[in-house]
Design a protein around this nucleic acid. Structure first.
Lengths: 368, 368
DNA sequence: CGCATTAGGTAATACGCATTAACGGGAGAG
DNA sequence: CTCTCCCGTTAATGCGTATTACCTAATGCG
């Protein structure tokens, strides 16, 4: 009697020249598939040495002559790990508007991922309403990776926390302490800002004003904290009066305001860097309109890098945010979480950048 | 007696909250794993309707509440799609040197991928020698995705052909006709260049010279072809004498050479765009040194976009390569291949860009 | 020479999902 | 009431690798 056909997937149709499998290699070399696997995927620790040199040679020869290449899908399935790290930004990863581009971060992300043996999955997230469309479960898709990196301000907290609670490795690029349990990497704004203030104090400035936007982002708060700490460390008067906060610095920061400060003895200003660069732009134009000379009459410092469209102007004193390094650090942290290892340092230092916009304070000549 | 332990792979260590599998979803929904699979991978033909609406709802609900997402590796292994498109560049995708950045293409790639419901896998290629390092199977990793987009000049032909032969969907961004069977998308340089020549001819120029580098890239060949076609179409004398080809235009294109041409009655020059922009730079500096006024005495056109560092100069007449559209077209083509549909048009048109560097020819005053 | 040990290798799994033959139950037919 | 047939669901497989318990022959030791 004919053996009853059992259920299951239909066997492959034995298509033309299918890629060789370990099984074929094994047959040709006269060994078992397991041996082939052992030969072709050497373990870092010398444990793989169980295979004799002779057999090893035969297998390698067979593999080469058949042109064997491992199937990544099978490999990753067996390893129970995809070697994929997700990158999720809440705007397009490659925005048309370069101003808001995460490009500099991605430079570091890619490099470090490559170094650690991971590939990157770009989730075409909220971008064009495509794959994940909107929907609360849009974020679910990231689970296909071993872990995911989040970039951007407008993070759906609920969904993110959900991922974390489920034990899914998540790293946020940029400080995110309010989100309990979410790992993050950030720039050391506090220290860097303190350094800039220290630099000004050393030059002899006694009254310094911070210009910031009306933003509650941690990056802004950190700079303000560093600013105040810097003042105190230098024994200078601090307090709310030294911070100018405005939702629209380019409008509120008038030349008159600037002159008033100057009359009060303020000789230096620092502005925070933001997406728009509004604080710095406002400060620059006010100084220009007020007819003040920099650095002769006022010293200016920027807590970050100047906007791209101001590239032609001299690069001001301040500090550089090491964006590629930040990206790399994020990847390292994420990889550590995925591997269950201990988390490395989340803060990346910013480097002080000397520039032509600061100098010793100048006893201002009275204006009529 | 203790049941003897059988050989085989050790079971997963039941780590914390492992990612949910279809099995978990099935348990929660009170059905079998097979049912979950049937519900979650809808077949295009109505055959999938075997599952009752009630069961389907329960499964979907369970999957959503667990945040289930299919494992791409397992899906691939089971010969199904995983909605991932690979992107493989032979240099870093995000190079530090912006000159060689593929960023503009990726803008379109990402947008189109999102629109078509695909996520992107960035294979951290030959960049840092990390993940894939070199090796013949460096390219093999891309098989994890449903198909892969290749960007860059230095394409390992052998490995690429291997992928194609194995029936793996591959698209090369940039013309690649020498690689038999490799699908590609490219810009319509021929037509665009013809248009530029036509524009000059209409202005009244009778003698035009093309400045190109000593490069055999299809992009260069196409421009030359379009140039010659443009001349013929305008009834102007063509021939090798109208093409200046140099490995180092910035050295070989001397002011003297330029004046000689001018004396011969050449009134317009077009230069190709390349990575380095050498042809255009050479042309510009020669014109400047020769003391020729543009566009009064010579008309200049650039077959592409000016290098980034010349952004401050006026944008010359020429054409724009619609890089985002090229990226999008590549993705559309790739998606078509994956779906087994017919391939769309591989050529993307360039748009003519009027500019201040061309004008009517000028009867040149003799110089002493 | 008997037994423990080592070297070299193999058989049997597991990984997560898609597929399909088979199965159970209810409806309709006879 | 029994027999088909249709529906919905499940059990059993396969995909290609990695891992591991176990087996066999050769070797070491007293």
């Amino acid at each position: 009697m004919e053996p009853r056909k059992r259920p299951g997937r239909a066997p492959a149709p034995a298509g033309r020249t299918a890629r060789p499998r370990q099984a074929e290699v094994a047959r040709l070399a006269g060994v078992s598939q397991a041996t082939v696997s052992l030969v072709l995927s050497p373990k870092p620790d010398g444990k793989g040495r169980i295979i004799s040199e002779e057999t090893r040679r035969r297998v390698l020869e067979a593999a080469r002559s058949l042109g064997y290449v491992p199937d990544p899908a099978a490999r990753r399935l067996a390893a129970a790990r995809n070697n994929l790290l997700g990158v999720f930004s809440f705007t397009a990863t490659f925005p048309t508007d370069v101003q808001h581009s995460y490009y500099p971060f991605l430079v570091g992300v890619e490099r470090e991922a490559a170094a650690l043996g991971y590939d990157l999955v770009l989730f075409t997230g909220s971008s064009t309403g495509g794959a994940g469309a909107a929907g609360p479960d849009a974020l679910s898709r990231v689970r296909l990776a071993d872990g995911c990196l989040f970039i951007g301000r407008h993070t759906p907290r609920t969904e993110l926390k959900r991922l974390v609670e489920d034990g899914f490795p998540v790293v946020h690029l940029g400080r995110r302490e309010e989100l309990e349990g979410v790992a993050w990497v950030g720039a050391g704004y506090v220290e860097a800002t303190r350094d800039v203030v220290g630099h000004l104090a050393e030059l002899g400035h006694r009254r310094i004003v911070l210009v910031r936007e009306d933003d509650d982002a941690p990056a802004s708060a950190d700079r303000q904290r560093g600013f105040l700490e810097g003042l105190e460390a230098a024994g200078l008067p601090s307090g709310p009066a030294t911070v100018f906060r405005s939702a629209d610095p380019q409008r509120d920061l008038t030349p008159e305001r600037l002159r008033a400060w100057a009359d009060e003895g303020v000789t230096a200003f620092v502005a925070e860097e933001t997406d728009t660069g509004a604080a710095w732009r406002g400060l620059l134009s006010a100084v220009r309109e007020a007819g003040l000379d920099c650095p002769a009459e006022v010293s200016l410092a920027l807590l970050g890098s100047p906007p791209a469209d101001l590239a032609s102007e001299p690069v001001p004193t301040g500090f550089d945010i090491p964006r590629p390094q930040l990206g790399a650090a994020a990847v390292r942290l994420l990889a550590a979480l995925v591997a269950g290892e201990e988390a490395p340092e989340p803060l990346v230092g910013c480097v002080f950048r000397p520039g032509p916009t600061t100098g010793p304070p100048h006893a201002r000549t009275e204006r009529p």
